[in-house]
Design a protein around this nucleic acid. Sequence first.
DNA 1: CCTGTTTATGGAAGCCCTTCCACATAAAGA
DNA 2: TCTTTATGTGGAAGGGCTTCCATAAACAGG
Lengths: 343, 343
Amino acid sequence: MTATIYDVAKRAGVGIGTVSRALNESTQIKPDTKARVLRAIHDLKYQPHALAQGLARKKTHMIAIIVPVFTGYFYLELLKGIQKEAAKNNYDLLLYSVDEGDRTEAFLKRTLSESRVDGVLLVSLKMSDKYAEQFQQSRFPIVLVDSLHSDLDSLTVENREGAYLATSHLISLGHKKIGMVDAQLKSAPAQVRLDGYKKALVDHGLPFNDAYLVITHDLTEKDGFNREAGYESMQQLIAMGEDRPTAVFIASDIQAAGAIQAIHESRLRIPEDVSIVGFDDIEMAEYLSLSTMHQPLFEMGQTAIQRLIDRMNDSELPVIRQRFHTKLVIRKSCGSQVPGMNL
Amino acid sequence: MTATIYDVAKRAGVGIGTVSRALNESTQIKPDTKARVLRAIHDLKYQPHALAQGLARKKTHMIAIIVPVFTGYFYLELLKGIQKEAAKNNYDLLLYSVDEGDRTEAFLKRTLSESRVDGVLLVSLKMSDKYAEQFQQSRFPIVLVDSLHSDLDSLTVENREGAYLATSHLISLGHKKIGMVDAQLKSAPAQVRLDGYKKALVDHGLPFNDAYLVITHDLTEKDGFNREAGYESMQQLIAMGEDRPTAVFIASDIQAAGAIQAIHESRLRIPEDVSIVGFDDIEMAEYLSLSTMHQPLFEMGQTAIQRLIDRMNDSELPVIRQRFHTKLVIRKSCGSQVPGMNL
DNA sequence: CCTGTTTATGGAAGCCCTTCCACATAAAGA
DNA sequence: TCTTTATGTGGAAGGGCTTCCATAAACAGG
């Protein structure tokens, strides 16, 4: 069927070693021999067998990427960056998408011992100490994206800073009663965004009001970063009546989408009655005219691959933690609280 | 480092063949021998080397999926279905995303000869006759999704039917002047959707008016399924003034998003001044209150994998072409043309 | 022209499996 | 008890590549 290196060798009248050298840019080959081999390769439409090559080289040129079952643009943008950079460096992407909680570990385990890939990108998923140690000890290249572990390379967004900026923006518009809708605190980003929110209040001399903080108590396995959670949380705030906050910082755009729906259903207006700021800047945010914190996802994806490649080339690199800054994107979902100052 | 089958054999005091049998559910092994081997495997944390296995078995248990650089929910939903079904059947997904035009062929070529994967899913990309023939001759399993070639398995959406239904819906609401915004006709779906639109007009005794058909003349390499194209196309229709259509069928939701923007900017109202129906039912459609044709993408993804697996098991299967039906999802973007009958 | 280098080349060994064949052992039949 | 058959088992061969080592060819220098 398909030609092997032996066929090429025979046709070119050389040994298999020479064929290999012709293919692998070795300097140890005479130019005209190389030309002859390349000609034979061309004639036979020969293409090296990826698996055999991988087996011999102990390199597969594949990168596994483990993501939570993709819900939304968040992962799309990231994937684009990852994909582009991987392609540029001739790496193929093996995509694992995890739905149930502990499948992550199963994937990590396989990854670690099957030698199917040269490295792993773990996205938005928690890295257990146990596996972190295994990866570290085995020097198996891994980079965490939007996730954190002190022993491993990680790229995260400045969630605290982002939340701080978002909240500060609302404060700067004159709001005094500023609420927050958050996801479950077992999620690190949710935790940290809450911190940023609190800090912004404190720094500007505003009290932190427990009643203004609504955290999804999603009974399912989810983390609360979804529309339904945002919808319900906002309903809860609205139910406070006149005491309700005049502005709300919402931990993710997708929750904000649900929140907006809840607000509209209550016949309240945005931003006249309630101002909101989201987080993520997913594509939909633009359609919702939602002010939000933009994350440089594409760039993070690219950087993640670069870092992974660096680490594959040198496993002794010191562990880094790279933080990416968010940027406030102002749209129409927040206005000044002072009457008459509205847009 | 990691244990090989030889280590396991030695530890269990058996031959390597026996270890292999213990792993591969062979009946040719005594239960207690098997137990002993499995014990050794457990002790050594042995895991077969995927590449070596692939090389020996001539099977990689990987499927390549080639998609246009993912823009939007269209691919997300499809990917979810693909991913889920692949995981269920223990196949790994190798993701290739194509941006520039002819990279597709490069991927197909590699796929065909590198033996890296057991099968290919080609999504929304044109299959050239040349490669179609190569795939067919080599009996290399491939399934086309949202793409078509007579010699290969393909799953498509009933684009004509969908366009027909969308247009008919507008007609049933009383509209007489119905326009269409389409993408470039070099794209098969665009072509076929236009046919459906025309047929609906004709079947209902309405004339086809050339001026009401706007086809993006995108100068870039794109096919016109994007927001900017929709925006400009709609501006063109609006520029007709009072002669403009009262309803427009738009070939994709993403174009519809652009069109809606254009409509709003012209101070026209939806659906009072212009009714629109889109195509795809991407997540955003709900937020835009856009009536549109829903495609069963998740299901298509699943089916695609199933079909691919079937074909991998039996390359002699007759070529099939499976069509999926679309469904009209009514939201608020279309109203009756007759004054007073509006919502 | 010969010796010492340098450069080029062939092909065995190794990567880690599966599979097949030969052989051993146990069970069954006579 | 001795065949015959069924059942288990070991390990060579093979899958297609890279790499290394030994050897051959080319090139200098004297």
